[in-house]
Amino acid sequence: MMNTINASGADSTEINQRLSQEDGEFFIEGCLGQRFLGAGMGGGKHIRISGIPGNALGAYLNGAEIETQGNAQDAVGDTMNAGRIIIHGNVGDTAGYAMRGGKIFIRGNAGYRTGVHMKEYQRHIPVIVIGGRAGSFLGEYQAGGLIIVLGLNEDEKPIVGGFPCTGMYGGKVFLRGDARHVSFPPQVTLRPAEQGDIDEISGHLNDYCRVFGLDSSWILASPFTVITPNSKNPYKQMYVTN
């Protein structure tokens, strides 16, 4: 049964209380900037949103699925642990901050600091797929997980902003294309993706394309660049015991 929640005039807490009462399908209509929707919610919930949710959509998400028809704002999936967030539009800054598991699929562009401090642990491997381009500081302090940027826009703008992967020390970033015009810090290494790398992301990309009704075959056939941390730990030499 579909539970419809009319968001107009309701605040975040009221909507979250409705969501936490039972599991099942929810449709939030007329969303207008309410923050923290779905915070900490577990599996068994599928939440669709029309309108624009506010910051921290799906923070600490723990298994629920959230799908928003338009854009989302800052801090989507902050410290998320499991579940899936699907954004049909663009997202603001710091999507997937410190996320440890689950997936964030963004059809459009992402703002600054996407995937900052993302990490992985055993079977928890978080994935962010961005259809358009990402802002500056993509994957800053990344410690694990996968960030994939497809650059499907046709506006010729660069696929990522400045300073991607600054302080990265784990995980992988995939950029479609050769990332020729992007400059990276010396603590990471770049290489063209091989078949093994593509195999690692093909399942996620197939999912992504299914969700947004895209053809995955030509995307998977495109060249990708893989960015990983430089195995020589650059921090160890910085200190002397006093």
């Binding site: 800052d74 801090a75 902050d78 800054d93 710091t94 901050y97 440890r100 600091r113 900052v116 401090h117 990490k119 992985e120 642990y121 928890h124 800053e140 302090y141 410690a143 694990g144 302080g167 020390y169 784990g170 730990n233 921090y235």
Partner: peptide
């Protein structure tokens, strides 16, 4: 590793600011 939920033997870095 199990408690911090990070792989064994990896550095655990807490950045100076909360980036959000």
């Amino acid at each position: 590793s199990r408690t911090r939920m990070i792989p064994e033997g990896t550095d655990a870095i807490s950045p100076a600011p909360h980036h959000d």
